[in-house]
């Protein structure tokens, strides 16, 4: 509301909001803090901070489970599947946004409905096919699965962005003598770039955190960080500091990406149903 709020009220709201914000963030903060403690300190309770900060957990985690390989796999799978998704989605979204036909709406809704198919409906055939062809734990086949998984979302996000570009401008470029290729590269692409970038970001995040197919279809060689963390699910002695270090390493890159793309999240995940 345009009305002036009193400073007292603002102060109270600030206190409440910050308290809730910190409570929500607490599990993450706690994990990060614990990752710098020694294992002994990690289980000593009221201890918010460590007696002696240490980086050794990160080293141990790298040594024990080869963090860098998993991280590399996460990068390959998340970025690779998203890029592949863009290759298929950009032309599709361009076509549906700028040359819609009678069937375009149905096509879009149908694409969305494929996203709603529960993974267990496809789990067994995919698993058996992967087993037969020895694709389990291979980068490319897993990447392709993740690509198909996120394709509807990529198309939808791009479509909503493209829809906001006035057709007039593309037509003007045609009048100005631009061919299809020039229209796409010189006019559409620069205007759509922010949209493409946030689509890219959001889908990298979703692919990075995908934890159904990656847990089933990868093991060691092509396994991403979701699987790496899952290997910490059975406790062995004092291991919280190491678990925390591993968790911190797994979430840090994507948390930062997420902070940058939070505004686009709404649009992408509601398929444009909430403006």
């Amino acid at each position: 509301m345009a009305r002036q709020t009193s400073p007292q009220r603002k102060l109270i709201v600030t206190l409440i909001a910050w308290t809730i914000g910190i409570l929500m963030f607490w599990p993450i903060l706690w994990t990060i803090l614990t990752s710098f403690k020694t294992e002994q300190d990690a289980v000593l309770m009221p201890q918010l901070f460590s007696t002696g900060w240490t980086f050794e957990n990160f080293g141990i985690v790298q040594e024990r489970s080869d963090y860098l390989r998993f991280a590399m796999n996460s990068i390959i799978l998340a970025f690779g599947s998203t890029l592949l998704g863009l290759v298929f989605a950009i032309p599709a979204a361009w076509s549906m946004a700028f040359s819609p036909s009678k069937r375009t709406k149905d096509t879009l809704l149908w694409m969305l409905s494929t996203k709603m198919m529960p993974p267990v409906g496809a789990l067994l055939p995919i698993y058996l096919i992967f087993k037969d062809y020895h694709w389990i734990d291979q980068h490319i086949p897993v990447l392709v699965i993740m690509f198909m998984l996120n394709l509807p979302l990529v198309i939808w996000m791009l479509f909503t962005y493209f829809k906001e570009i006035p057709v007039d401008i593309l037509e003007a470029s045609r009048m100005d003598g631009a061919g299809v290729w020039q229209e796409l590269t010189r006019v559409l692409a620069p205007m759509a770039l922010p949209g493409i970038a946030s689509t890219f970001l959001l889908n990298v995040i979703l692919a990075w955190n995908e934890a159904f197919w990656t847990l089933k279809l990868t093991d060691v060689h092509a396994a991403p960080l979701t699987v790496f963390i899952a290997s910490y699910s059975s406790p062995e002695g004092l291991f919280w500091a190491k678990l925390s270090a591993a968790s911190t390493m797994a979430i840090a890159p994507i948390l930062i990406l997420g902070w940058f793309s939070q505004k686009q999240l709404v649009r992408g995940l509601t398929f444009g149903a909430v403006k």
Binding site: D168, A172, S173, M175, D176, V187
Partner: peptide, 11 residues
Amino acid sequence: AMVFQSYALYP
């Protein structure tokens, strides 16, 4: 050459 109602300039 065409001049559009929305001007259709390249932003």
